[in-house]
């Protein structure tokens, strides 16, 4: 308990030092009174006080698209991409994991598609699905799908044959074996892929928003807009918000994982 308190204090200290020096170093000039020569130029990295001011402004209803609306749009697309990607990836992993022949047939196509840098798909996806929410979701999906698919596939492949035999001797049908042996043991593998999946879903969505324009909304749009107006403060607002969203989503996933995998010794004491 004392240890945890100490760690918290240290974390706070580091945060305050970072913010303090950021604020201070962007405020003093390298050569006094010479314009343009800062130790660290606030033009590029802005300043905490400036960022806070912009945040309050962007959060107010003086703007057409508030930071809340943008964050909501980003979170929504991320969660949708995540949910669709995880469920389809899981289903495909189960299917191919149980069907050797199909897996062998499809292998080169899967590897080829997965090797394609997903960012290269952004223009095509935008062309097909337009500038709205849908394009962002599809982009996140193409990334998440493969992460979850490969993990689940591996999980199904490494199901302990002895557990399957045990189930068979207890009278299980093929379908019951799938439900009571294969799915639970594969789930442990699938879960290992969820935390990276949510992060990659967020990446997919933000990249989608770079191109999506205002109708797609989202924090990625704010970043691109700030680039257009060379507004470092707005950009920092967007980046910090994205960071916060990423952390919250990852923590949420972790909680679900801990609950569902509580049978594993490494999770037992944390449930």
């Amino acid at each position: 308990m004392k240890e945890r308190g100490a760690i918290l204090v240290w974390r706070l200290l580091i945060l305050l030092t970072l913010l303090g020096s950021w604020q201070w170093l962007t405020g003093i000039k390298a050569i006094s009174r010479t314009p343009g020569f800062y130790w660290i130029d606030p033009f590029f990295v802005s300043r905490p006080s400036e960022i806070l001011k912009r945040f309050v402004y962007l959060a107010s209803d003086e703007v057409r698209l508030t930071i809340w609306q943008m964050a909501l749009s980003t979170i929504q697309s991320t969660l949708w991409g995540f949910v669709v990607g995880v469920s389809s990836g899981f289903a495909a992993g189960l299917l191919l994991g149980r069907n050797d022949r199909l897996a062998r047939i499809l292998e080169p196509y899967i590897i080829a598609f997965n090797s394609l840098p997903r960012i290269a798909l952004v223009p095509l996806i935008t062309m097909i699905f337009g500038f709205g929410l849908l394009a962002k979701i599809v982009l996140a999906w193409t990334i998440v799908f493969f992460i979850v698919f490969f993990n689940t596939f591996q999980g199904v492949r490494s199901v302990d044959a002895d557990l399957v035999h045990a189930a068979r001797f207890l009278g299980a049908s093929e379908q019951q074996i799938l439900r009571t042996v294969v799915v639970p043991s594969a789930l442990a593998w699938t879960f290992a892929s969820l935390t990276p999946s949510i992060s990659f879903a967020l990446i997919g969505v933000v990249v989608g928003e770079f191109l999506g324009g205002e109708s797609g909304g989202g924090l990625g749009y704010l970043i691109i807009q700030s680039l257009g107006t060379l507004n470092a403060a707005d950009m920092m607002v967007a980046l910090l918000s994205l960071g916060a969203i990423g952390v919250v989503l990852a923590l949420g996933i972790k909680q679900v994982e801990i609950r569902l995998l509580r049978w594993r010794p490494e999770y037992r004491n944390r449930a």
């Binding site: 302990d160 002895d162 557990l163 035999h165 045990a166 001797f169 207890l170 009571t180 042996v181 639970p184 043991s185 049978w263 594993r264």
Partner: peptide
């Protein structure tokens, strides 16, 4: 026919 295996085959998630 019931079979008790040499290896531990109790389902860990149950």
């Amino acid at each position: 026919v019931g079979y008790v295996f040499q290896k531990d085959t109790v389902f860990p998630w149950r």
